[in-house]
Amino acid sequence: MKIVIISLLAISLHLTNSQITSGIVSDFVRTNLIGYPLIHEPKTWIFDPDVALKRRKQFVDLHGDKGEKLIERLGLGIDGNYEERLAEQRKRDEGHLGGLNAHLP
């Protein structure tokens, strides 16, 4: 606290114009000690803690239980060539379990 007081006094001594000094001091106090007025305004948020339970069924229907369909769709791209990529992926993964060869450790 002593450092703050000393720095405020030093600023006020170096500046001769009282308006500039009061402006700097008031800005310093407002920004560092009190905070901006925006911080102190009350805010209201609409919050529903059960929204995740309500939307879970929609997510599962759209993306699969653990997001398997979502991951697959992300891998297909968004350039319109998803059918060709899907065919290539199905051909690549044929005979594999989870992307790995079942015969390898």
Rank of each mutant, 00 (worst) to 15 (best):
residue 43 K to P: 00
residue 86 L to K: 10
residue 64 G to T: 05
residue 91 K to F: 10
residue 7 S to M: 10
residue 47 F to M: 11
residue 40 H to M: 06
residue 95 G to T: 00
residue 78 I to V: 09
residue 67 G to Q: 03
residue 10 A to G: 14
residue 14 H to G: 14
residue 71 I to G: 02
residue 35 G to I: 09
residue 18 S to F: 13
residue 74 L to R: 09
residue 91 K to W: 04
residue 4 V to S: 06
residue 16 T to G: 15
residue 44 T to I: 10
residue 59 F to N: 05
residue 48 D to C: 03
residue 45 W to N: 12
residue 4 V to D: 05
residue 60 V to I: 15
residue 90 R to N: 11
residue 86 L to Y: 02
residue 37 P to A: 08
residue 23 G to N: 12
residue 61 D to W: 01
residue 26 S to E: 06
residue 59 F to G: 03
residue 10 A to Q: 13
residue 81 N to S: 10
residue 104 L to M: 09
residue 79 D to C: 07
residue 72 E to I: 07
residue 20 I to D: 15
residue 14 H to N: 07
residue 80 G to W: 05
residue 81 N to L: 06
residue 14 H to E: 07
residue 46 I to E: 14
residue 56 R to E: 09
residue 98 G to H: 04
residue 27 D to R: 05
residue 11 I to H: 01
residue 68 E to P: 01
residue 25 V to E: 08
residue 4 V to A: 09
residue 55 R to Y: 06
residue 37 P to M: 04
residue 86 L to S: 09
residue 34 I to V: 14
residue 96 H to M: 14
residue 89 Q to I: 11
residue 26 S to W: 01
residue 9 L to C: 13
residue 93 D to E: 14
residue 57 K to G: 07
residue 44 T to C: 03
residue 94 E to L: 14
residue 33 L to E: 01
residue 11 I to Q: 08
residue 45 W to V: 13
residue 35 G to M: 07
residue 86 L to C: 01
residue 29 V to N: 01
residue 52 A to G: 09
residue 46 I to Y: 10
residue 31 T to S: 12
residue 90 R to V: 13
residue 99 G to F: 04
residue 39 I to A: 11
residue 53 L to C: 03
residue 56 R to V: 15
residue 92 R to A: 15
residue 31 T to R: 10
residue 1 M to S: 12
residue 88 E to M: 10
residue 31 T to N: 08
residue 67 G to M: 04
residue 92 R to I: 01
residue 22 S to T: 09
residue 96 H to R: 15
residue 76 L to K: 04
residue 22 S to H: 04
residue 65 D to Q: 05
residue 52 A to F: 13
residue 8 L to S: 04
residue 11 I to N: 08
residue 19 Q to F: 13
residue 51 V to N: 02
residue 85 R to D: 08
residue 100 L to T: 00
residue 101 N to G: 03
residue 95 G to W: 14
residue 96 H to N: 12
residue 58 Q to I: 15
residue 70 L to M: 09
residue 91 K to Q: 10
residue 83 E to I: 12
residue 5 I to S: 15
residue 18 S to C: 02
residue 39 I to E: 11
residue 77 G to S: 10
residue 65 D to L: 13
residue 79 D to K: 04
residue 98 G to D: 13
residue 100 L to I: 00
residue 54 K to C: 00
residue 105 P to Q: 07
residue 13 L to I: 01
residue 1 M to D: 08
residue 42 P to V: 04
residue 81 N to A: 12
residue 2 K to P: 00
residue 27 D to E: 08
residue 76 L to D: 04
residue 57 K to Y: 02
residue 59 F to Y: 08
residue 92 R to H: 13
residue 104 L to H: 11
residue 42 P to D: 13
residue 3 I to S: 09
residue 43 K to M: 09
residue 24 I to C: 10
residue 17 N to F: 03
residue 28 F to T: 05
residue 91 K to P: 00
residue 21 T to P: 01
residue 29 V to E: 01
residue 89 Q to D: 05
residue 64 G to R: 02
residue 40 H to K: 10
residue 25 V to D: 01
residue 79 D to V: 03
residue 6 I to D: 15
residue 72 E to V: 07
residue 15 L to D: 02
residue 49 P to S: 11
residue 52 A to S: 12
residue 81 N to I: 00
residue 13 L to E: 15
residue 82 Y to L: 03
residue 96 H to K: 15
residue 71 I to D: 10
residue 6 I to A: 15
residue 72 E to M: 11
residue 34 I to E: 02
